[in-house]
Amino acid sequence: MRPTDRKYSKSHEWVKLDGETALVGITDFAVQALSNGNESDLVHCDLPESGRLLAAGESFGEIESVKAVSDLYAPIAGEVLEINSGIEDHLEIVSRDPWGQGWILRLKPERKSLDGLMDAAEYEKYLATLAH
């Protein structure tokens, strides 16, 4: 079971409220989907500047794995307060710990509600629909 203290988007990002702010990252499914089984498969990322205002669903950055560049999407609207500078040159942290140390953005949410996103159980069901 994935962490129940956060909500999930269909494009495989998670968001977790943390006081007045919200942390955003990508799920283990996203990491697996982009990788070839090695921690070192995520190689580059482009992340937004602090202060940028993101709409829900807007692309906020890009991540390169060993064989693909993929867009990253904001699960909620908000202002970028901080990016996790520790991961920019060490994306293996995202591979190893996508739920904790591998967080990507800290946002000031436009709204405190995470309505419209999936909880962990709903996300699991959604993932099952992607399998065949």
Binding site: K10, S11, L34, N36, S59, V66, K67, A68, V69, S70, D71, Y73
Partner: peptide, 25 residues
């Protein structure tokens, strides 16, 4: 080269890459 590459004559012969959005590849 990576494990996913197509090779013959012990050399790489096809270069490839993908771009992925939430909708398309």
């Amino acid at each position: 080269s990576s494990p996913l590459d197509l090779v013959w004559d012990e050399r790489k012969g096809v270069g490839s890459a993908q771009r992925r959005t939430r909708e398309r590849v």
